[in-house]
Structures are given as C-alpha cells and as structure tokens.
Amino acid sequence: MTQIEAPAVTPFRTKLNSPLTKNRITVLQINLGKRCNLACTHCHVDAGPKRTEELSPEICHQIIDLIHRFPQIKIVDLTGGAPEMNYGFKPIVEAARETGKEVIVRSNLTIYFEPGFDYLPEYFAENQLKVVASLPCYLEDNVDKMRGNGVYNDSIRAIQWLNQLGYGKDPNLIIDLVYNPPLPLSDKFSLTPNQVKLEQDYKKFLKEHFDIQFNQLFTITNLPVGRSKFHLQRTKLYSPYLRFLEDNYNASTIEHLMCRDELSIDYLGNVYDCDFNQMENLGAKSRTGETLTVGKLLEAGSLDLIDQIRTASYCYGCTAGCGSSCGGALV
C-alpha cells in the first residue's frame, strides 16, 4: 500500500492495528470541477473563479450509467468548486433522484446571487436536495476573513431564502451548516470545538439575529491539503500541525471514517478513496493493484473492487479528537 508521509510523524498505517479496509460502497462523492465564484483561504480543492477544469460530457454519461446500474448507491454527494457551476450538475441530480437516491449538494450559498443561478433554491426544493453549506462561523468578521468580503451577508440571505422554501422546517428539506476553524497562525493549535455545543450556539445566534433555522452543524477539521497545506508550509507550521494531529489520534474514529463506504470521483473520471486523496492525487487501487476509473468500474460490473484504503499523514486530521468527516464529528 503506497504511502505519502511527512517527516516527524508516525506513518498512519503503523498507527493502525490492521489494514484500513473498505466496506460495501453506498456513497458516491463526485467533484464536478474546480469552477467556483469564491476562492476561500481554507479551500482544499484550490477552486476559484479562474479555474476552468470541469466534468466532460463523456465522464458525465459514465457517472449517470453508474448511478442507474448500482442500486447499492444510497447517496450521491456533489461537490466542487461550486458544483452548481460545473458541467453535469443537473443531469446527475436528476439521474440520482429518478433512481431514489439521496442527493447532497455542497453549496457555498453565495452562488444563488450570481447571474444565471437564481433558479437554484427553488430547484433544490423541487428535487428535495440536501444542502450542506459552509458557514465557518456565526460571526460576520470571521467568515469574511476566510471566504471573502460580503460572503457572510450573502450566506445569511441565501439561508433565509431556503428557509422561506421550507428548508430547516420541512423534514424533506434539510440544510446543514459546516464549521471550519480558522487557519492557525502559530503553533498554539486546537481541535474543533464540541459539535453539539457549537451547534446550540449557532442556532441561538442565527435565530435571534436573522430568524434562521437549520438542521445540523458539522465541525470539520482543516486537513493539511490544498490551500490549507500551502498556508501551513508558508508559515512553517506544516510538520508541527501534523504532529499535533497525531498526538490527538483517537482510535475509536476508525470504524466511522467516511472513506470506508464511499468512492470519490474527480472530473476526469478517476476514482479515489476520499476527497482528500483526490486532491493529493493518491488514486484508489483495486485488490489486484490496478488504478481505478469510472470506466473500469462499469467494465467490472462492481463498485467493490477495493480491499485496502490508501492512507497518508493527513489521515490524522480525520482521526484527531472527535474525528472529522464530510458529515462532521465521528464520535
């Protein structure tokens, strides 16, 4: 099993008592491309307005074929960039909903106010899409520092719009928010706050100030990947941060890691164990050692070709403290 390790931390595989293995695949997470109307400082995808990489019609067709052919897929999780801006968004949404799958859209919310995208809130509600939206703090200054001037106010307006359509109130219209900690400026690192307590704080503040309702808050650790990695390297905090994450390793998170029951697919059709491996170009391997693509999954007639998950030093980010995943804390 190939590893990518930073110096001065224990190789992640050594920390485990046994190989990290796949369960039966039930989640497809698809990165539709790098196009985004924002360029957030913590973005591990390195997305932005100047990026042009996106899904091709050929790969889009293959993904739709995958969705139709495998009823074991329960969740189709769409990300980017801003997934809504990239080719294939609507066809994949509609294929997944036609086949009864839950669709998650990882939305930055501000996209609704860009020309040509004001149809999105109603489209989300009509198709009962689950919205997972970044709001890295409930205070304006902290959000705008991480995501750009005016992003907080646009995000608030967007959530209010979704609330008017029933999101956060109707049990079929779910909106969850995501907390990311600010990037560290010194070696005084800290883990993400207690998710339950922080959710209560978010709900109280947003209800009192903006009459906003949402379902859950997810606390997500900044992994040293993408722009977070560049920041840590620039400030000479990369190795200390990895050591901090290792020092807070929690073995009870392993059972719940998101990589165990998902496949991550990039806009070129390559397959990875998780989104972070995708960004570090650490492709998933079949049990025979073959690099996987969507085309190869279709040829094989199976999603379950992977025995062992490929790991690296940044896996400590998902296993530190209460753990971290696209669905928040793990334990």
Rank of each mutant, 00 (worst) to 15 (best):
C322G: 02
E290K: 15
G88Q: 02
I306G: 04
Y138W: 12
C40P: 07
R243K: 14
T291G: 05
G116Y: 12
L242Y: 03
K203S: 07
T235I: 00
Q62V: 05
R69T: 05
E53G: 02
F113E: 10
T253M: 01
N277E: 14
D261H: 13
N281C: 12
Y202W: 06
K204R: 14
E290L: 09
K203Q: 15
A284G: 10
P184W: 01
Y152L: 08
Y202R: 07
K15H: 03
Q213W: 00
T26A: 04
S56N: 03
I254V: 15
G150Y: 12
F205H: 13
L129I: 15
Y202G: 07
P11M: 12
I175N: 05
P181H: 04
V76I: 14
R260D: 04
L282G: 06
P224G: 08
T14K: 13
K296L: 15
K236F: 00
E280D: 14
S252H: 12
H61Y: 09
G295T: 09
G88W: 02
L305N: 10
I104E: 00
F230H: 14
D261I: 06
N270H: 09
L185R: 04
L303S: 06
I175A: 02
E199A: 12
E290N: 09
L232D: 10
Q233A: 12
M146A: 13
H44Y: 15
I265Q: 10
I220R: 07
E114C: 11
F210V: 02
Y152I: 07
E5S: 10
D176G: 01
L223H: 08
D187F: 00
Y314S: 11
F230S: 15
I212R: 05
G289S: 04
S302D: 10
D247S: 15
S239R: 05
T52E: 07
L282M: 15
R24L: 14
K285A: 09
P71M: 05
K236Q: 12
Y123N: 06
G226N: 11
V294W: 03
L120H: 11
Y112I: 12
K130S: 02
G321E: 09
Q164H: 13
T79F: 06
Y316V: 08
G323V: 06
L120C: 12
N149Y: 10
I25T: 15
V76M: 04
K197L: 11
G88A: 03
S190H: 09
T293H: 01
G168R: 06
T311G: 07
T99V: 02
R69G: 06
N250V: 03
G81I: 01
T2Q: 14
I63F: 02
I63N: 03
N31D: 13
S252M: 02
G166C: 09
